[in-house]
Design a binder for these strands. Sequence first.
DNA 1: ACAGAAGCTTA
DNA 2: GTAAGCTTCTGTT
Length: 981
Amino acid sequence: MKKGDHLFLVDGSGYIFRAYHALPPLTRKSDGLPVGAVSGFCNMLWKLMQDARNTDVGIVPTHFAVIFDYSSKTFRNDLYPEYKANRSAPPEDLIPQFGLIRQATRAFNLPCIEMEGFEADDLIATYCRLACEAGGDTTIISSDKDLMQLVGATVGMYDPMKDRQIGVPEVIEKWGVPPEKMVDLQALTGDSVDNVPGVPGIGPKTAAQLLEQFGDLDGLLARAGEIKQDKRRESIIANTDKARVSRQLVTLKNDVPVAEGLDDFVLHAPDGPKLIGFLKTMEFTSLTRRVAEATSTEAGDVQAVAVTVERADSAHGPDVGAGEPVMARNGAEPSESNGTTETPKQGDTPSLLAALRLERAATRKIDISAYQCIRDIATLKAWVAEARETGIAAFDVRATAADPMQAELIGMAMATAPGRAAYIPFSHKSGNGDLLGGGTLENQIPVREALAVLKPLLEDKSVLKIAQNLKYDLVIMSRYGIDVAPFDDTMLISYVLDAGTPHGHGMDALADKWLGHTPLQLKDVTGSGKSSVGFDQVDIDKATAHAAEDADVTLRLWLVLKPRLAAKGLVSVYERLERPLVPVLARMEQRGISVDRQILSRLSGELAQGAARLEEEIYQLIGERINIGSPKQLGDILFGRMGLPGGSKTKTGQWSTSAQLLEDLAAEGHELPRKIVDWRQLTKLKSTYTDALPGFIHPDTKRVHTSYALAATTTGRLSSSDPNLQNIPVRTAEGRKIRTAFIADKGNRLVSADYSQIELRVLAHVAEIPQLRQAFADGADIHAITASEMFNVPVEGMPSEVRRRAKAINFGIIYGISAFGLANQLSIPREEASNYIKKYFERFPGIRDYIEETKAYAREHGFVETIFGRRIHYPDIRSSNPSIRAFNERASINARLQGTAADIIRRAMVRMDEALEKAKLSARMLLQVHDELIFETVDAEVEATIPVVRHVMENAAMPAVSMSVPLHVDARAANNWDEAH
DNA sequence: ACAGAAGCTTA
DNA sequence: GTAAGCTTCTGTT
């Protein structure tokens, strides 16, 4: 082996188990021999070898071996007799397959390596070292964490089933420590599968954090007394020996006296006849056919195949046919149903213009081979000048990640007219690089230089920039020091035009609907599944076709969609409520919020303990260790074996184990359901919040940056994801503790400001209900007033149950009330609920009128509008199916209220930054939770900030709408979100 | 490995 | 009864 050679080591034993479990269990040969795992193994090995020949993917092995465990007894059992002692025997139908899989390996002409007393992992470690010393690189085909300690400059891993390469960054991302510290991490966490003890109570998150703090395991054990948390400190001190022996167990031995040397692993081509012979014996017909095809096209003999391996890049790459589907797509005629059916009215200029532009854009054929690739500054400058000339540039940023806070620029596409588009690659890598990544390709304009030319254009007030989902590009560009303006966003225009229609607002849906065109899919250029690569690995010609097409399509969509805004009277919705919010949200996402790791980690420990205790108690009560998290198992036990009363079935025929039902059983005095409900709460909090949130802390900013979607809901609300910070617990004391982890930086406070009863206020305004308007004007308790009106009870000394029922009705109205739903909510008979509603409408006839008007309007127009003109479509409102129709009616009633409230807070957000700046305040808006805004500001400015925030929020409807009901905002400041809320 | 169901969190 | 997103389990690829 020499420098530049590349060794593939397949973790054969790992492969066997994964193949066995990933495949349907009952694959048998005609004589009954179980061969499912053998089949999976052969398929994977074949795919791996085919993929490996594809030099586009980047790695061509020169050496190849498959490594197996020899037996279960190894030197580790001498160190620690319990090692792997809890391993049950392999499944019966897997046992005969071990030998077959070794034979399969030989049939593939691959070395089959194993050694008594050592695990496959030790042999892999040894060969990695030998390869490294010889100057070669190694790829380990496995995803086993036990092997991650070997990853480094010359050693990478590859998971063939997930098609994922695992290098140093991936190890750090997954485990929070670099590969060389994996041993220490595993020593702390242990491994229940292999029976490595570790330190009880220390999981991967805690271990990573401790190792970061103390450097390594020895440092940690030596200074364990410094750990603040009592339980953790005591556990580590008490289990020092276990940690040490665990480290020995997980440390791979890289000096096994191996019999075969690397030179024995030189890769030979598959011996077609030999392999086919084996596969036929196994009755793997489809793989036999594939192998036969692959080998016969190369003249069917060993020599010819061997040549193919050497020159796979020239003639047999997987992309030979790439031009064909492209042409086919291109040649397709635009679909008939693309909006041209709408006939423009006489004299309706915007409509006419819309139709004309649509006609032009849609009929002009999209030719993705016509796009230019810009590879020198002079050409780039010419394109920039052209965009200045036309005053319009659609652009599309290509970056390394879907998360704009983590993404690095790879290139950018721009379009100045339909069909006239170009791609500027900045940092594409060579296709045949190894795991370390190929070198940057020649003839690209480096990011800095390209951005220096592009920045004046992107910031030019006289050039409109157009993008699809512009917030993503905005966040990235902002990180590169560019403030893109002015701009339009085709996704948002579509959202304003068509919220609620069945098509989405993504580029593919829009291209299909408006242009009758299907753009190249990302996976068509990056490869799907098997051979997918980062966009920076994509061949520049293909990258150009894809990225430039997106810019071209975006421009065409803008030409079609923008005029429709005016035609439908939706310009102001777009310009007041949508577009200006984009940079506001981009800034909020970039700022992020501080989350205290320590608090979450402590909570996580507490929750784990609580859950474990409940688990034991539950097992005691049912006398069996079932999976409590499985509603199926739980239902079978509770209502089947234990025969608890009141069981009901879900629509799939399973026993329902909903919290409501379990609560009812608990109320009847059953002990078990209570514990299950409690267990669910604890595990929910742990898995969704305390365990998940730390993973979202950005490595550089140390803050959590959520992502807001502007066009995700039908009503105009925002949504939050990755992580969702709009559903952080608040109702229970236990859950609220999670909010204490959301903190202000030192010297700062969090300010939370939320609208009080905004949707009911909107209802009182739009439905013109005198009693409710008066109640809100008086600052009265709205639910108590409602109850008082309905039941003729004075507000003073009102029983809480009476108020509770009125409150449920008020909420019910907002949700488009039904007797069924109200009955459910209040656990009362439907008759009774029906009477409540009747009585409510007698007292508040305006609300019944409002509901009927809304339904009639929706039925007539197919949409409803908020008071600011946002349009929400309900295409199924005329459905002949009564339950679908009723659902759409309720949703449309709700949409006017929820959507208006969403519009109001949007208006507040759009104005907020300027208002703060004008007041010379440094407060920064961080989060939005539908009716709440969270800010961070320096201590000294808290008192001055609150009135400004309140003023902007309470007057947000003005001047567009002067509400007949005052808006009220509660605001307070504290060090954490729990206390501020 | 992925999709859907069930369940639970928020406004 | 409205609007969302995330995790776990389960059956199927």
